[in-house]
Design a protein around this nucleic acid. Structure first.
Lengths: 119, 119
DNA sequence: CAGTATCCAAATTGATACTG
DNA sequence: CAGTATCAATTTGGATACTG
C-alpha cells in the first residue's frame, strides 16, 4: 500500500515514484537494461541490438542512466576508441524487479492487442 | 532471460516490451493505478489525488488506460453527472507487479539523489 | 461534475552530416 | 568506433475558457 505522496508540480522530485520511474520510463531505458542483462557491451553492440535508435538518442540515454547510477561507462583510449557499458548493482536490481513486469507484458501482449481492436 | 525481440520502427508493436510498457510509461498512468489501488474513484477524486494534472490530460490518460483494458469507466446519468473509474483484473495484475518496483524506488530515492548531486 | 475545444510551450525523438 | 553538432518533426503536456 504505497502512498502517492506529494504531487504538486514543484515537488515532483519529492515523489519517489515520479522522480525515479519517470527517468527510466522513456522509450529506450528498459530496453537498454535488457540488452545489458548478460554482460557489458560496446556502444555499437547496444545500438545494433536496439535496431532503430539513433546515435544521438542512444548517447544521451546512456549518459542519463550513468548519472542515475544504473550503469557504468568505461573508455579505452585506443584507436579506434572502445567504450563499454555495464549495469551496476543498482541497474541489475531494477532490472530484476522489472523482469516479472516484462514477462507479464510478453504473456499478455496478444490479449491486449485484441482488446484494442474492439475499441 | 527475456529476448528483446524486433526493434525496427515498423515493428514496434511486435515487441511486447515496447508495445505494452510504452503505453503505461507516461507521466501519469502508474500514479493513477496507485490512486485506484484501494477501490473505484470518481473523476475529480483522482484529479485531486494527483494534485497538478489538468482535466484534459487526465481525461485522455484515463481513456487510453480504458482502451488498454486496465480500468473500467462507468457513467451514472444523474445531474450532476457521476463517473467512476475502477481497475480491472488486468490493471490490478500490472499494479501488483509494479509494486515491488515502486517500493524499491521509495527505498532508493535518497541514494539516487545523492548520486545525481555528485555528477 | 465531468468533461470538450482551442491554442500553445516544452520535451522527446529523429535525420543527417561531420570528427578525433 | 564512438561520438558531436545542427536542424526538423513529432509527441506530450499545459493554460484557459466553455458546456450539458
Amino acid at each position: 500500500m504505497v502512498k502517492v505522496t506529494v504531487l504538486d508540480k514543484k515537488d515532483a522530485q519529492n515523489c519517489p515514484i515520479r522522480d525515479v520511474l519517470d527517468r527510466v520510463g522513456d522509450k529506450w531505458s528498459i530496453l537498454i537494461f535488457c540488452v545489458l542483462e548478460d554482460g557489458a557491451k560496446r556502444f555499437n553492440e547496444i545500438k545494433r541490438a536496439l535496431g532503430d535508435i539513433t546515435q544521438r538518442v542512444l548517447t544521451s540515454t546512456l549518459r542519463k542512466l550513468e548519472t542515475e547510477g544504473y550503469l557504468t561507462r568505461e573508455v579505452f583510449p585506443t584507436s579506434p576508441p572502445k567504450v563499454i557499458y555495464e549495469l551496476t548493482a543498482r541497474g541489475r536490481a531494477l532490472l530484476g524487479l522489472m523482469m516479472p513486469v516484462i514477462e507479464w507484458a510478453e504473456m499478455t501482449h496478444a490479449e491486449i492487442k485484441a482488446d484494442r481492436a474492439q475499441a
